[in-house]
Design a protein around this nucleic acid. Structure first.
Lengths: 213, 213
DNA sequence: TGTTTCGATTTTGTATACAAAAATGACAAT
DNA sequence: ATTGTCATTTTTGTATACAAAATCGAAACA
């Protein structure tokens, strides 16, 4: 690689594979071909194996005895479960954020979703998606809770790989988002947290219907 | 190393090291000596490296560039954060458990902490500790939420390694435990969940005081 | 006593080797 | 067409090798 090796090879391989999973180059359930990665990345078996073990530790991939590594595939039920878990974690994150954030940070959050008006153009729809992501990750950041942030890193990405776009349309979620923001503005930590939890649980309800049980 | 190799060596090494961390044979902050593990477990570098990478993926240990692996050491702040996170996750677990559990399972939960009376003998104190652990993990099991269960596996063990015994004395927590159980018996999912969350947040408040900030 | 220097030793990160298991695929028999 | 057999190829899990970096320790110095 570069002349100055700042990171070890394993780290590089690890992040490359992680991105390949997130961007769909490696699809859920797909077998991971080590030899291919080897020549593709120009490294030996060892860093590949290390990176794969690391990913297996994070359960992003799974090792099946004597047949190699496979990209983890989430069942419909697991996705439903994910939204309940996210509801719990982000609810608490929101509550803590309201308790800890500075006035300026609260002010900043207030501006999210301020100028959304319907009907949404194609571009505005995508902007809504982006704002949604930023809103949620900002609250997790402002929670200042290292464990919650770790949980989000571990489990938050699943939504990106396993679902496409928004679970519910903007005209259904905008009201909830604005209610959460109002509670944040009022520094009502408990209420803001509860609203966030219910927000996710409502998305969960939508996903449950899509599951063939 | 039996005649029939049912698990791969890496799995065996992984679990051995994990236990060594949980039982304190490898203390937080300690450097992990690969060569030593090699001869101790009678395997080559490779399975050791794979197991260590796996543990690093789970953040149980951390890899410092060119100086090896170290058992992760949790700061006081991180422990405080852990209890807020647990409050969120177990609160939701409790809520889901009440929604999903059968009558028999609810009945079973009702018996926890039933015959605790004060003052506690040494033995009764340890029994209380055990009941506490069982109570919490049973609720997580009965939540039937795979993601929450995974989160608990990843993060729940930290309490074992980083704290000794109970954070608060039984005579302080017994009331909270019984209130949670009462809400569960009444099938009041929301209330039971909230009480569980507050239960953990109160332990968190105790830990905050121990932190020199 | 307490530092600093510097060579010897250990450990790390990476590469390579290889037996055994699994996947593949051509061919034969239904 | 489907199924079964079995030799060939690929891949896996594990072991070993090795240059470069980090650590250690003793000697030299303050």
């Amino acid at each position: 690689m570069g002349l100055i090796e700042t990171r070890i090879l394993t780290d590089h391989v690890y992040e490359t594979i992680k991105l390949m999973i997130r961007d769909g180059a490696l699809r859920p359930g797909a077998k991971i071909n080590k030899k291919e990665l080897e020549s593709q990345l120009g490294v030996s078996q060892t860093p590949i194996n290390d990176a794969l073990s690391r990913l297996a530790g994070q359960k992003h991939i799974e090792q099946r005895n004597r047949r190699g590594y496979f990209v983890r595939k989430y069942s419909c039920k697991e996705l439903v479960d994910l939204f309940a878990a996210r509801g719990a974690v982000e609810g608490m994150a929101t509550r803590l954020a309201v308790e800890n954030a500075s006035d300026a940070e609260i002010e900043q959050i207030t501006h999210f979703f301020a100028e959304v008006s319907f009907p949404l153009s194609e571009a505005a729809y995508h902007a809504y998606e982006r704002t949604d992501r930023e809103f949620h990750s900002l609250l997790i950041e402002y929670s200042r809770n290292a464990i919650i942030q770790e949980m989000n890193e571990q489990f938050g990405y699943i939504v990106r790989t396993a679902t496409t776009g928004l679970v519910r349309p903007p005209d259904e979620t905008i009201g909830e988002h604005r209610a959460i923001i109002a509670a944040i503005r009022d520094r009502n930590a408990r209420l803001a947290g509860e609203l966030m939890t219910e927000h996710h649980l409502r998305s969960r309800d939508v996903l449950v219907k899509d599951c063939r049980d």
